[in-house]
Nucleic acid binder design. Structure first.
Lengths: 137, 137
DNA sequence: TCCTACGATGGACGGAATCCAAGTCAAGAA
DNA sequence: TTCTTGACTTGGATTCCGTCCATCGTAGGA
C-alpha cells in the first residue's frame, strides 16, 4: 500500500487526500468493488469526495497498471487491485460473485499465429462462469 | 437463415415483420453489431421499428441461444449471430474491431478442481487483445 | 371474418459514466 | 514561511445504453 503511494509519487502524482483515500480503499479490501462502492467507502473517511474524482482516480490507476478494470456483466465495471498477480476470474451466474482464479497454462499459447490475423496480440482475459455453492443450494 | 425463422416458428414464436427483419439483419452480416446498429439497419427496411422492439427481440434470441451477447469493452453490448460455432474473440485495443478466433484446446480443461471453489463451472469466455494491422500502422 | 392474447410502440425512466466551468490546493520557488 | 501556479476537485448537466410501461396493433387460430 505505502508501496503504491510511493510508486504514484515517483510517477509525478500530486498526492491529494482524495487520491490517498481511493488508493487505501482499493488496497484495504481485495474484493472487486464498483466505482460507486469505492466512492461510498471513500466517503466514510472523506465525506465530501465527489464521484467524478473517484472515476478520475480509478481511471488513472488503471492507466498506470496499478488496478485492473473488470466488466463481467453488462452492469457497472469493477476494479481489481490485484493487478501485479496475473489471474483470471470465476463469476457466479446466479449472484454475480467474483473470485480470482489461477488456471494452468497460458491462454496466449493457445492462439496459433494463423489465428492472429496480423494482430500484435498482447493479452488474454478468461472469464469462467458457473453456479457458486451458495446459489447451487 | 430460413433455418433460423423455422426454428423460431417451431418454438412458438409469432412471426412479425419486425422480428423477421431483426433476424435477417443479424444473419445478413456476420459482424458484431450493437443494438443501435441493428436498429439502424432494421429501420432501413422497416422505418417505424422501435428500439424497444429491437432490444426485446435481441434478448429473446439470446435466451433461445441463437445469438451471443458480447461485451468486450464497457460500452454497448454487441450481438454475435455465430452462436452455433463455438469460438472466442480477438479485439483491437486501438479501434475496437472484433474478430472471431478459434484457439487450440479447451480453457475449461485449464481450471483444476481446486481452483473451482465448489462452483459448477459451465463455460469460459476468452478475450484476446492486441493492435490490429491497420492500427499498428 | 372475427377475437384475443401476444407483440410493437415511443416516451419516460434509470443506472453508469463523462464532461465542463469554476473553485481549491499541493508542492516547488523565492 | 509565504507565494504562485498549474494540477486537481467539485457537482451539476449531459450523454450513452438499456429497461419499463400503458396503450395500440396484429398474427394466426377458431
Amino acid at each position: 500500500m505505502s508501496d503504491l503511494l510511493e510508486r504514484l509519487r515517483e510517477r509525478g502524482w500530486r498526492l491529494t487526500s482524495q487520491r490517498r483515500v481511493v488508493a487505501e480503499v482499493l488496497d484495504g479490501e481485495h474484493v472487486h468493488l464498483t466505482a460507486d462502492e469505492v466512492h461510498a467507502r471513500a466517503a466514510e473517511r472523506l465525506p465530501e469526495i465527489s464521484r467524478a474524482t473517484v472515476y478520475n482516480t480509478l481511471g488513472e490507476l488503471v492507466t498506470l497498471g496499478e488496478v485492473i478494470e473488470v466488466s463481467t456483466d453488462g452492469r457497472a465495471k469493477r476494479y481489481d487491485p490485484n493487478a501485479h498477480h496475473p489471474h483470471q476470474h470465476l463469476v457466479c451466474t446466479g449472484c454475480g460473485a467474483i473470485r480470482d482464479v489461477h488456471p494452468l497454462g497460458d491462454p496466449l499459447a493457445d492462439l496459433p499465429a494463423e489465428q492472429r490475423f496480423g494482430f500484435a496480440v498482447s493479452g488474454a482475459e478468461v472469464t469462467y462462469r458457473g453456479l457458486c455453492p451458495a446459489c447451487a443450494g
